[in-house]
Design a binder for these strands. Structure first.
Lengths: 210, 210
DNA sequence: AATTTCTTGTGAAATTTTTCACGAACGCTT
DNA sequence: AAGCGTTCGTGAAAAATTTCACAAGAAATT
């Protein structure tokens, strides 16, 4: 019926799959075993048809007249996202924001672990709460290769962000979560996700004043 | 040619306008007075036509054959975004992430100031580096009304996020930058921007294993 | 002042994304 | 086991967004 011809899944759909996964986790915690596309969509803040379309990109998991098995659907989405295995991540730039991200526990329970942090001045590590080692930048390439790290969080000042990014890419990093407020130029096969909190605020402020 | 009919500007365009604004600021710092759509688009990571289309939503600012005046275009975009005036913001939930955001200086120079933080247990304010007062949640509604605050950063645990959001909205908050990993339900005229770092990482990890 | 060169602004086309509409499949009830 | 009520899966339609193509306007040049 459905040829499984590895269709390219849009980026937006992937993003929503992550959201569905979190909603499903909450449902599971509450002991709910089955959920309709309508209920799950509502929890995720989307329309039911969009949810179904999103799932249709990589399979059919529901039971008509009943809905989706929460556990099974979770498993399938996690599988598709490749979230099943824990991914090591490094953080570069231990300034205010970097330090903040290091002390943030939120990543761990979501399958990511920041295994080390790097900074041009590793000594300025004052905060005792963080458990990760802060290492000098000169050891960055070696560390990445040795530990086969593929993802990095970049929280260095804008002025050096591109230079550091180049170094990351050269050492084998394939995905960068970029907090520096500039657009990074990287090879096509390297993925960059930008997070700019000031822009998010600016965005809000625009829409609330109409 | 001249249709000043207050066209609705798409959300994506608004987001990009913020990016253009930052690129322009950098150009200005470097003493560049004029820029073509091609150059600015490249700096912003978009296509030239998209840049021009984005600008066309609210006016025509360029000179054909020459490009855009950096200072003038900055001013026009800032005006359109309403970024000209400084916006007071409060932060709710001084946990790991909240504390991190408080100590992050990045907002100030972008026109936003976190004027106060709120937490159920305001006492646990250990960090001396933050300058904002940490106030008990019971004073939240009064503070919002008194200071006429319209925007809030929400960094409380998921379990209480909706409850807190309700309280914020009731007190007059119109825009929420939500870090809690749930989808908030709010009235239509209230704007929510979600930031979920775990999802961003998950997203990266998907595309790099292709 | 005419010509060339450049770059904008924009209607139209192309593409992407979302929504609709409805047939098909399943559980439940009788 | 037949009928009823639900809810999924999906092709088609609609809407939104991006890209194209090129005329038009302005500066630079001869």
């Amino acid at each position: 019926m459905k040829k499984t011809g590895r269709l390219v899944i849009p980026r937006k759909t992937i993003y929503r799959l992550s959201i569905y996964l979190r909603c499903l986790a909450r449902l599971k915690e509450n002991g709910i075993g089955t959920v309709s596309s309508e209920a799950l969509a509502k929890a995720a803040g989307v329309k039911p048809t969009q949810l179904r379309k999103d799932l249709a990109y990589f399979g059919t998991f529901g039971t008509r007249g009943l809905g989706y098995d929460v556990t099974e659907l979770s498993k399938k989405i996690a599988e598709e996202l490749g979230t099943s295995s824990l991914q090591p991540v490094i953080l570069v730039g231990v300034g205010n924001l970097g330090l903040a991200l290091l002390s943030y526990r939120g990543f761990e329970k979501e399958g990511f672990e920041i295994i080390a942090a790097f900074d041009a001045e590793p000594r300025r590590q004052r905060d005792k709460k963080i458990k990760q080692p802060v290492i000098g930048m000169e050891q960055l390439p070696e560390f990445i290769r040795e530990h086969n790290v593929k993802m990095a969080i970049l929280s260095v000042p804008a002025a050096v962000a591109q230079t550091v990014a180049n170094s990351l890419v050269e050492s084998g990093i394939m995905g960068i979560l970029n907090f520096a407020p500039i657009v990074l130029t990287v090879p096509e096969d390297v993925m960059v996700n930008n997070v700019n909190l000031a822009i998010e605020l600016e965005n809000l402020s625009y829409f609330i004043q109409g």
